[in-house]
């Protein structure tokens, strides 16, 4: 048999350059950061010690108070998410290129992008001097911070609607409002509702830390307990955060499945958020 030569493999420049960039970035970070790595040796022992202190003798007497604080966190997330949706819905229709012109859509999208970049905690820091150390600060931080993500998810849904019902609406002589009501809304409502719930789940995590900087909710209790080495309270608080978050995730997730059931909606791609 004569030797066969395979066709020459093309050099994947995109891949090579990306890989190189990542390697350089990692090395730069490793050299640049002055980390006391030796502290890692004690870390498992320290963590174990703190773990025993926190969870070793949990006191059920701490529960009601902390559960109430967790409820406040959940409330902050829910009201904040609703406020965000209230703004994101109308804005997202203006950001959909199939409903409005490109220039308007572009401007609204940049607003979404800017809002998306800033973490809620930073917003909360800015709002504290105005609204004080109250849950309302957390609500507004989450409300403003979620407009961007929700808006982006919403306009992607709007842009993926089917044109057929719109054509039917045109053919019966419908005006713009009727066209919107029956051609667009029924197609986007289930997904939008489901995205609001999804964002609520994400915001539970954000609101749980609002308290670390004093903006209401359970984070405040946990932060104080850790600062004053009140280990049992911190442990109970952490446990409640974990259980509460998982519980809300489960309920909201089940509701989302029900809403989307029977439609061809694409699953939420976290990677696009």
């Amino acid at each position: 048999m004569s030797e066969l030569s395979l066709p020459k493999k093309a050099i994947d420049w995109f891949r090579n350059i990306t890989t190189l960039a990542i390697v350089v970035a990692v090395i730069w970070s490793l050299i640049g950061l002055e980390i006391r790595w030796e502290r890692l040796i004690d870390l498992p022992a320290d963590l174990f010690l703190i773990g025993t202190l926190m969870f070793g003798n949990l006191d059920i007497a701490d529960f009601p108070n902390l559960a109430g604080a967790m409820w406040e966190s959940i409330s902050i997330a829910w009201v904040g998410t609703l406020i965000a949706a209230l703004f994101a819905i109308p804005l997202s229709f203006l950001a959909a290129e199939n409903l409005v012109g490109r220039p308007i859509a572009w401007v609204i999208r940049q607003v979404f992008n800017i809002l998306r970049a800033v973490p809620e905690v930073i917003l909360a820091i800015a709002l504290i001097p105005i609204f004080g150390l109250t849950p309302l600060t957390g609500v507004l931080a989450i409300g403003i911070g979620s407009i961007g993500t929700l808006g982006k998810l919403f306009y992607e849904v709007i842009e993926s609607i089917k044109k057929n019902p719109l054509e039917a609406a045109d053919a019966v002589g419908a005006n713009k409002l009727v066209r919107f009501r029956w051609g667009v809304l029924p197609q986007v409502m289930p997904e939008m509702t489901s995205f609001v719930l999804y964002r609520f789940e994400v915001n539970i995590r954000a609101s749980a830390v609002m308290g670390l900087i004093g903006a209401g909710g359970i984070g405040n209790d946990v932060a104080l307990a850790l600062r004053f080495k009140d280990w049992e309270v911190a442990g109970m608080g952490l446990l409640i955060v974990i259980l509460g978050t998982i519980l809300v995730d489960a309920i909201s997730g089940a509701a989302r499945k029900r809403i989307i059931k029977g439609t061809q909606a694409k699953p939420i791609e976290l990677a696009e958020v």
Partner: peptide, 12 residues
Amino acid sequence: MIFQGFNLVDRA
């Protein structure tokens, strides 16, 4: 008008 793809509002 009657369409090939029916063009109904699915969720209505």
